[in-house]
Design a protein around this nucleic acid. Sequence first.
DNA 1: ACTTTACGTCAGTCATGTTGACTCGAACCC
DNA 2: GGGTTCGAGTCAACATGACTGACGTAAAGT
Lengths: 169, 169
Amino acid sequence: MTDVKSGVNPLFLREDDLRQGIELLFFGYRDFTAEPDAMLAEIGLGRAHHRAIYFIGRNPGISVTDLLGILRITKQSLSRVLGDLMDQGFVDQRQGTRDRRRRLLELTEKGVELERRLSENQRQRMARAYRLAGAEAVEGFRRVMLGLIDDADRSRFPAPAAPPRVVRR
Amino acid sequence: MTDVKSGVNPLFLREDDLRQGIELLFFGYRDFTAEPDAMLAEIGLGRAHHRAIYFIGRNPGISVTDLLGILRITKQSLSRVLGDLMDQGFVDQRQGTRDRRRRLLELTEKGVELERRLSENQRQRMARAYRLAGAEAVEGFRRVMLGLIDDADRSRFPAPAAPPRVVRR
DNA sequence: ACTTTACGTCAGTCATGTTGACTCGAACCC
DNA sequence: GGGTTCGAGTCAACATGACTGACGTAAAGT
């Protein structure tokens, strides 16, 4: 598949459209994470801590194994991150009742506050993008991103009850 | 999970819609990079090398400074990466003619081949997502992603050539 | 002539990931 | 009851990709 630029692609998609998608993802992700990264650096934490805090906040009482499944890193890596977060009082563990082997993770009040500060930045950036693009575009964004995600994780995103709506100010 | 999301959001968008966007980006990026990362690991390179190769291929003759501007990393970091790529014969440098301080970067034939292999995977994933989502969704994806990107880099993405769909408001 | 720019390099540090091996206690199964 | 699997944690060693800071050199700009 050599680059016959304006030629017909068997997928009906032009090479440049695909490349543009790749680049949008690169630049989008880069800019999406830059500001929270800077905030985290100030308190000696990194992006990995943000991810852990985010998903614990999103799934209170999640087990270590389930969190590993989301993050797709090794338990040794996560262990270091969780250790930092627990030492600094952002995260608490409690033993599972039904299965006492499980350590269920929760944000402390301090953790909730940090999560809010970090994600607020990203929510605002996302909100700005949604507002600029319009409601219809948001649904398109959702559909394309879903297509990029492995089947295994697609189920984390149920179809919206009502289409994500942009509320006029 | 117990999502006790308190009622009113100071933003104009529902909290959950924004969170879903954040998560789509996280999972999408994670899955988008996983396979090329695995290929790179086999030849002792990493994601940083892929990024350099990609943008050199995309901008043949780009200067080191310009590449730094795209990647937003330090010259020391890029230097290591470029060194690896030049040692292994994926990238060539030539001196600028107008400005002889500049080192203009280009992929060798071997570099082009590697870039093709790596990005082919991502192009196919992107093509699949585009096909599943449909043409209209692709435009929406483009618009939302653009909104996530810092103003400074927005200009890298000119409006699509085909239907210059003017959206007001 | 002086300053700035483009690039490179040396040296040290940090964050985040990896493999592999091992322990411990709880749960599961025959 | 006993053996095995599972969830979690730990120790050790290592790779990668980022960072800061300092310094050097050559070319271009003023």
